[in-house]
């Protein structure tokens, strides 16, 4: 029984989110909205943590993959889902759900492909170059989207509107749970010990037979995939998206969560995602001070406590020993 603990926890979380989703009408819409934001940020932060934290490859372009996912999923929904409905057994909640899942997967896969395309050449380079390449990729994606035609599928600088609001509590937290499960299982397995090995010492890792490039690309592609999923969820929650919403300040936001939570600590990053998202919501009136506080926090943290605000929980990161 014990060996399936993690799978059972995953299942419980998914069922729980389904339950809450069904009852969502009973909750205050404002708090529900904050909860959904929390969930989306958990997906973003946990997936970025795989790249930046566990594998030590500093990406500053997570918002770009989110954008690819958001556009991919939205366009699929807007263009395809009406045509798919009859094939899925006509309009109805089941068909809508399947079509939405397909849209999310399309978005996620588009993002993963982009992650592979960007990662293959740039992950051969030293760490700080990757930061700039991903930042540059973030800008390229924004510029391309902004220069598309206003009446084309991408909607130009104003972006897309009228995306159906399909994102529910269930979708967000089921995917968040899967994301945490995937990243956690990957990293804690023997295979996954290659990720921190690459982070700690790439040369030693190579000398131990670890294919460093493959590990980096894997982390990058999986991270991009989940960023893409979160983008799809975000688009179907907000119902409008624009290129400006995925600029590199958005990427910085995710980076801040990962750093404050502690790079490489999944639990820390989840807590940071919750705290910072809620905090953001309540500090909305002090928007201009918010970034000021975050930036000071970032600097002070790096000097005083670079491992993140939480103490590390070795239990959560290590597989139980025999």
């Amino acid at each position: 029984m014990k060996r399936y603990t993690t799978q059972i926890v995953l299942l419980v979380v998914v069922l729980l989110s389904l339950g809450i989703s069904v009852l969502s009408g009973k909750f205050d819409a404002y708090y529900m909205d904050i909860a959904l934001n929390v969930g989306i940020n958990i997906i973003l932060a946990v997936s970025l943590n795989l790249v930046n934290g566990h594998t030590g490859q500093f990406s500053l372009g997570h918002a770009a993959f989110m954008a690819v996912g958001a556009y991919g999923a939205s366009i699929f929904t807007l263009e395809m889902s009406a045509r798919l409905m009859p094939l899925l057994g006509g309009p109805g909640s089941f068909a809508t759900g399947v079509a939405f899942l397909l849209a999310l997967l399309v978005g996620g896969l588009c993002a993963a492909v982009c992650g592979w395309l960007v990662g293959m050449p740039s992950l051969r380079l030293r760490g700080d170059y990757l930061a700039i390449v991903t930042l540059g990729f973030n800008e390229i994606v924004r510029v391309i989207l902004q220069n598309t035609s206003g009446d084309g599928v991408f909607g130009g600088p104003l972006g897309l509107k009228g995306i159906p609001p399909l994102t529910t509590f269930f979708w967000v937290f089921a995917i968040a749970a899967i994301c945490v499960y995937v990243v956690g299982s990957m990293v804690s397995s023997t295979y996954g010990r290659g990720f921190p090995a690459v982070r700690d010492d790439e040369i030693a890792a190579g000398s131990m037979g670890i294919n460093t490039v493959r590990y980096k690309v894997t982390a990058f592609v999986v991270g991009s995939f989940f960023a893409g999923l979160s983008g799809g969820l975000y688009a179907h929650l907000r119902t409008t998206i624009s290129p400006e919403g995925f600029n590199f300040l958005k990427s910085f936001d995710v980076v801040v969560i990962v750093i404050l939570g502690g790079m490489g600590s999944t639990a820390g990053v989840i807590i940071a995602a919750i705290v910072l998202t809620v905090l953001n919501e309540f500090l909305r009136d002090f928007e201009q001070y918010r970034m000021l506080v975050f930036s000071i926090l970032l600097i002070v943290m790096m000097i005083v406590r670079p491992q993140g605000l939480l103490p590390s929980f070795p239990i959560l990161n290590r597989k139980k020993s025999a």
Binding site: F58, G127, D128, F252, I259, M291, F294, S295, I299, M302
Partner: peptide
């Protein structure tokens, strides 16, 4: 300076922090 012997990644993050700090102080 306090980070002189730390991993380069930490310094890079600090630099991002400094950059955001200057931008938002200037905005204020």
């Amino acid at each position: 300076r306090p980070l002189r012997d730390r991993p380069r990644l930490n310094v890079l993050i600090t630099a991002i922090g400094v950059s955001l700090f200057i931008e938002y102080s200037a905005q204020l």
